[in-house]
């Protein structure tokens, strides 16, 4: 039998882990549903109608947060010296253990919670209350276009510039919008980073992970500010910069970001694999 991967062993590993973790999965899903019900109840008290997009954003935010935290409660003990012994001596390969983690954290749990949450939302639309929900969120739940259009609709400023500039902004939006990263890819990337950090830290996992993210965010913010300053400096020193060149820069940046967002989850999962393989108990 192949020591690295065997389909039967893979199936048994997933089944074994599901048997051990199904109560945690169900409890977490119940918590998600309870949070959504609580928000619905607050909206009812408030009496204001809630738009479909606002509900979709709320649902997606809850699912993203719980989805990213899932590795911490589903696989919190697997890398610990005492608690992780049974996991380590379990006769499946590192690849099979890693795939099983991927299937449970990134497929089964998110799929189950998303379907149940959307079904709950559909049920709530049937409730005969005055300020109740209406319309389905199924179509706009993870649509980047809906989010972008909404953000543009909420823009707190109006363009007083001439027609050429408005045209440029519209052109930039129309070109860059289709290139924007789908929210699901962003969630997958964040979750894979959380999975890696969950396996990396043995104690105070959530605290250390948040600190790591904070550190990365600070570095990212500093780089962004410096880049923006450099960009505006170059604009001031060269006011005749062609709008097409700016547009091209935006497209290149969007493409690079999309590529990074697609590559990073693969890199994080690969690093998780090597982490599990190198773990000592």
């Amino acid at each position: 039998m192949n020591a690295t991967f065997n389909i039967r062993r893979q199936g048994l590993t997933i089944y074994k882990e599901l048997q051990e973790k199904y109560s945690i999965i169900l409890t977490s899903t119940c918590i998600i549903l309870m949070i959504y019900l609580a928000i619905w109840a607050l909206n009812l008290i408030d009496g204001e109608p809630v738009s479909t997009v606002a509900r979709a954003v709320t649902a997606a935010t809850i699912l993203s947060i719980i989805g990213c935290l899932a590795p911490f409660f589903l696989y919190k003990n697997e890398n610990r010296r005492m608690e992780g012994v049974f996991y380590a001596v379990s006769p499946s390969s590192t690849l099979e253990k890693c795939i099983s983690m991927l299937v449970i954290c990134s497929v089964i749990f998110p799929l189950l919670s998303t379907v149940l949450l959307m079904s709950l939302d559909s049920l709530l639309t049937l409730m005969p209350f005055e300020a109740s929900y209406s319309g389905s969120i199924w179509g706009c739940m993870f649509s980047s276009k809906v989010y972008m259009d909404t953000i543009m609709g909420f823009m707190p400023f109006s363009f007083n510039a001439d027609a050429m500039h408005i045209d440029l902004v519209n052109k930039m939006y129309d070109t860059v919008n289709p290139l924007s990263i789908p929210p699901i890819v962003g969630i997958a990337m964040t979750q894979s980073a959380f999975v890696l950090l969950n396996m990396l830290f043995r104690r105070h996992k959530i605290g250390y992970t948040l600190l790591t993210f904070l550190g990365i965010w600070v570095i990212g913010a500093v780089i962004s500010v410096i880049s923006a300053i450099c960009f505006f400096d170059s604009l001031q020193s060269n006011p005749d910069i062609a709008p097409e060149r700016m547009l091209q820069c935006m497209i290149t940046l969007s493409r690079a970001l999309s590529l990074i967002y697609c590559i990073l989850p693969i890199v994080f999962w690969a690093l998780t694999y090597f982490r599990i393989r190198r773990l000592q108990y």
Binding site: M1, A3, A88, V89, P91, S92, S93, E96, R277
Partner: peptide, 11 residues
């Protein structure tokens, strides 16, 4: 930690 070894070992 070869599964072929681990299936015949318990600690």
């Amino acid at each position: 930690r070869n599964p072929e070894m681990l299936k015949d070992l318990y600690f």
